[in-house]
Design a protein around this nucleic acid. Sequence first.
DNA 1: ACCTGAACACCGTTCAAGT
DNA 2: ACCTGAACACCGTTCAAGT
Lengths: 230, 230
Amino acid sequence: MAKKAQSVPRREKGLSRNRIIEASIELLDSSGEGGLTFRALSERLATGPGAIYWHIASKSELLIAACDAIVARTMNAPVATNKREATPQAIIRSLALGMFDAIDAHPWVGSALIRAELQSPMVRIVERIGQQVRALGVPDEQQWEAVSALFSYILGVGGKNAANGQLARTRGIDRSEFLEAMSHVWLQLDPQEYPFVRSAAGQLRAHDDRMDFLAGINLILKGIESSRRR
Amino acid sequence: MAKKAQSVPRREKGLSRNRIIEASIELLDSSGEGGLTFRALSERLATGPGAIYWHIASKSELLIAACDAIVARTMNAPVATNKREATPQAIIRSLALGMFDAIDAHPWVGSALIRAELQSPMVRIVERIGQQVRALGVPDEQQWEAVSALFSYILGVGGKNAANGQLARTRGIDRSEFLEAMSHVWLQLDPQEYPFVRSAAGQLRAHDDRMDFLAGINLILKGIESSRRR
DNA sequence: ACCTGAACACCGTTCAAGT
DNA sequence: ACCTGAACACCGTTCAAGT
């Protein structure tokens, strides 16, 4: 009968790079970094562990590919800014927050991103930010430094959040409980040796990761601005 | 300092948390993150894998303890600044570079640091930087944001360098070869979609990680300064 | 071309048994 | 109190064999 007359949704049974990546994302989301194993994955795909190797070279490649899929979605999503003032700064803030939220939703992306250095996920992020840094009027020789700083900062916060997510999962602990406990530990420190950390213990309990993240982006943006002005 | 008159250096044969940590550092330095296994470690310590568990709860605790030992040394080292102008900014730069160099020498510290969130290694770094941010005259409510931004940035660059080190080890590839190859890949990208990355490919080949890192620290410091002035 | 699944060479961790 | 080492329950990866 008609072979391509209508949208026969690619036979469910055939394995493909894409199906493998989608299944990996589901697995990573539902059971964390440790949840992605070739055995669990092949069970979910109703196949043998060896079959996956026909489509993907290694676990590390698989993790980066899954990370890249999330980053691609995030960087291609329409930028959520007020049209009235879609300044480069506002767009950069929005892109950065997009990554923050993506990592918040998929904590494993944070650590995968770090391992994917200079590969596709980084390229996507750097490109989007880079264009806005240009639009900011930063001179050519300073653009790389500016983009690199923003990217590294996002990477750092992302990695931290990935660790948080991992910790929350393994210890089955609530984030605010954990902050409470940590704040208590900090208050216990020797006041001679740790005056700053002790005094910051209160803010630790109250702080909002997302707002702190944004504040850091704003500091870097201000730094870029005041460098440019000179 | 010397607490007691040159005591006998704790009998070589007895296991101890410290000896285990030192052996772990050697193993991590010589064969990377993957090189730290309880089997390799117990062989080096001439004991069984189970023995280590008497002194340390888990591999993750071991990794963080090893990381903390390096961070402690780094943060306690005398700050290398020109006495004449030991401004808070200069001290922060020096502390940050100290961490950069430590991670450069021990790439595994980068990824361990990320996993150690809010624990001892972070506390040491945050304290040292925090004191200088205070000395900068940043108002109380803004201190945490400033320190947090600096720390996250250091974490991000550190994580990236850890990945580099790992990559260099597994692929047995030289850093500059790798940058060369990556720069070539970037030049191949679609100019419509990736104008910025393409134009940055040249700088990628030429760039100096350490200088880029310092430039980022300076951007954040400038941002802090201009926030304060407002 | 694509898939199967047993087998290999590892892991971290536990625990009865020793000293 | 501290150590031993076999055993358990996993891993990623390979590969002859199938379709």
